[in-house]
Design a protein around this nucleic acid. Structure first.
Lengths: 234, 234
DNA sequence: GGCTTTATTATGTATATACATAATTTTCTG
DNA sequence: CAGAAAATTATGTATATACATAATAAAGCC
């Protein structure tokens, strides 16, 4: 591999990837330092740095000052799952989106899972909204949402009849961070009914809590219709 | 916000994040260009560039040459799920890891799901390994693996009695990319038995296929014990 | 007006240089 | 020889400059 072949940090990233895959650099092994690689590739150190940083971020390399850069021993593959607004999730599949609010309760005692997720005492009164999102008329996902009106006072004025809480909150209650949990649960009660799922059928469930600093905004359990799965690449 | 407060691209990233969360820059809105921001923050354009690029990669900003940088209209939250070696996944939880190979078949007809995932005809003969990983002696995950020995000839010599296929492949068959799928499935047959799950119990399942270029290496279905979930932050 | 060509502009990236920072290795000291 | 201090080293980052690239806006032309 002669110098001069590489004219962007991406091409250097490619070459480093190739060497890792081809086992020219084995897992756990320290690779040459940036200055040496820069010389070999015929580019500036900053360019090598950019390439190696990107690979470190993706978990393939481990870097420490002075100690150098080594190929990760157990390359933790990071699967990036996109969690879009439900409407877009459906529309992107080329299906027509439908929304139906089921119930809205000004003040209902939070169930254990929601209270725990939001760091509140079980039974704390919260705004509760249940809704169904459909794709081409068929049930797609059941939304079981609990909103902390102390954090988002504006939500109390919304009836969520036309705009889903999912979408309204994203636009009106920006969050600083959130927790997300993927699980499998048995269909039961209201969600089972709305999703046309027989009792006990395995459902793919996403539980998400969003925060504005230290204050919980909302906790939601999204129960997807039977057969739903999420795909991505690593 | 005076100039000079920012002395690293991360601190600029923080400030940009703050403005997005505080709605000083609204979703869909074009933000000032790099040169202006650099002037405002009292730093070089390259520094602003690094900050904005990182935010674009995380999906919060959308950038196009000449058109400028805008706050993403529907900030697709990207949840990054770490998919480590199972042994490490267990050990990181402070539990003791155990492994037991159940069966190994030199040449078995690939089931539909595995064949489809690997782009092969259903029934193509593949090396099949079934195994159970345990945490503190309790069943943790059932591994149902299909290996293409055309792509990984070395696998034919392995009995996978002491080292799991999960771990052996990661060390001996580097992959260029992979597909991953998270789903909920009803417990059934062998996995149900090994996981002490009653028939029909909802199980969290990960299906993964890895590739070396255009050649499929392996397809695996990991059925986790009842109650398992994966968590991350957004 | 509608089409093509030409600026213009914002981002993308490379480079040389300089200094900061963290970790290791060596040297010094009691 | 143990422990502290100093030197070394690799990565982390900032900066000014330069040019590349893509997308848009403007100008020119029929």
């Amino acid at each position: 591999m002669n110098a001069g072949t590489f004219r962007s940090w991406q091409s250097i990233q490619q070459e480093v990837l190739r060497r890792i895959h081809a086992r020219e650099w084995e897992p756990g092994e320290v690779i040459p330092n940036e200055a040496d690689l820069a010389r070999e590739f015929g580019c500036a150190r900053a360019t090598v740095n950019r390439a190696l940083q990107a690979l470190a971020e993706s978990g393939l390399l481990e870097r420490r000052r002075k100690a150098g850069t080594r190929v990760a021993l157990h390359p933790v593959s990071k699967a990036t799952v996109n969690v879009p607004v439900i409407r877009l999730e459906i529309e992107e599949r080329g299906r027509s989106y439908g929304y139906e609010r089921i119930t809205r309760l000004e003040s209902a005692p939070a169930p254990l899972w929601a209270a725990a997720a939001m760091g509140l005492a079980a039974g704390t009164p919260l705004l509760h909204v249940a809704a169904l999102h459909t794709a081409d008329g068929a049930p797609f996902v059941h939304e079981d949402r609990w909103i902390n009106t102390d954090t988002v006072p504006g939500a109390a004025q919304q009836d969520f009849r036309d705009v889903s809480a999912n979408e309204w909150l994203l636009t009106n209650a920006p969050y600083t961070h959130g927790d997300i949990c993927f699980a499998a649960m048995a269909a039961d009660g209201e969600p089972a009914l709305r999703l046309d799922a027989s009792d006990g059928a395995p459902l793919f469930v996403i539980e998400r809590t969003t925060w504005d600093g230290a204050r919980a905004i909302t906790a939601v359990r999204l129960s997807y219709a039977p057969g739903h799965s999420i795909r991505t690449t690593i």
